[in-house]
Design a protein around this nucleic acid. Structure first.
Lengths: 193, 193
DNA sequence: CAAGGAATCGGACTATAGTCCGGTTGTGCC
DNA sequence: GGCACAACCGGACTATAGTCCGATTCCTTG
């Protein structure tokens, strides 16, 4: 198979990336995300620390890389999937309120299923959450659904603030995720009144 | 002046606390909160690191101690001050909506005036924000104002999520604090509909 | 005022995130 | 197939948060 002139990634780099991600996933499963150091991951993967940080930037980047696949799945369901999460077909397009409610439920499912990892990707370095591309995606989507309001962008930020991993982690521990979900759905309704 | 039998704090401890807080405030003003290490503060104050961490727990605790006075001022204005921020007198008691709007404005003023310090106190260690007593105070106050809703506690957490230093920092940088304030007031109205 | 005990002090120590750069390895071109 | 160069590798290095415990200082009691 022919390759175009600038091959995206060298063979050894690709191999190492896979090895590192596997090792990190195994260690995280076994000991918990917070208890695993970058040194431990490098050692388990059989690579140097420099390799780790060059490929993934920092611990948040490593967590984001591990989440990448699941995140894309959700994003594609939003862009191209069936209603109410996706846009639906011409003859049964869901209302913004229905889509926003579906987004809240789907995002909370995703978040709660991978809470330690998402939390790490958002809090490892200050401001990490707002820099990564995923946040931009969620914000754009919610903004579009809120286009009937005075300031859809500001309102979207507010809704996403309540979906921050740190926040959901703390509040769900106190109230349980059922009350968190119900309150978020109330908010979605209030914003699409 | 006579002292009661267990004197709250030893003389040297009190002296050191004051010296440390002064040194920290000066260094923060001069170099910015993020650029000052705990070692530097200890050296400037002329005390050892152990003293710093024993008295203040961690960097978040030190930031919280520096904010303490301003925080208490705001809390007292809420509890005992005049309407609409405070409860007001029997003949002119403000509505919950008016009080919530006043709280949002007052809290944003406080937050924006001390953003780096509050941000440090909330993000230095994961979950720090939800452990400190101040959060409990704000949450209790907002919960009471939202007592007309299905789940005032959950709703109060949502409103406070949008007032997290990290979030306001990122969003205000993008949209400006005027739009942040307006959107927060809209939310306060929506929750007291 | 002296002594005993408890709270405090402080700096050496550990753990961990993230940086740097000389050496190595893979890739495209001749 | 070999060569030149860029990309990559890895471990030693730095910086910083936070811990620990022997030495010191303060307060109380007789």
């Amino acid at each position: 198979m022919l390759r175009s002139s600038p091959p995206i990634e060298r063979a050894d780099a690709a191999r190492n990336r896979a090895v590192v991600l596997d090792a990190a996933a195994a260690l995280f499963r076994q000991h918990g995300v917070d208890a695993v150091s970058m040194d431990a991951i490098a050692a388990a993967a059989g690579v140097g620390k420099g390799t780790l940080f060059r490929r993934f930037g920092d611990k948040a980047g490593l967590a984001a890389a591990l989440l990448d696949e699941q995140e894309r799945t959700l994003q594609e369901a939003i862009l191209f999937g069936s209603a109410p999460l996706g846009p639906g077909k011409p003859d049964d397009d869901p209302t913004p309120r229905e889509r926003l409610r579906a987004f809240v439920v789907a995002y909370l499912d995703y978040l709660l299923a991978h809470l330690p990892l998402v939390r790490m990707s958002e809090t490892a370095s200050p401001g990490a959450r707002y820099r990564i591309g995923a946040y931009r995606f969620w914000h754009r989507h919610v903004s579009l659904l809120l286009s009937g309001r005075d300031d859809p962008q500001a309102d979207a930020h507010i809704l996403l603030a309540a979906l921050a991993a740190e926040h959901v982690h703390a509040v769900a521990a106190e109230l349980g995720h059922i009350r968190v979900r119900r309150a978020m759905l109330d908010l979605a309704d209030a914003l699409t009144a």
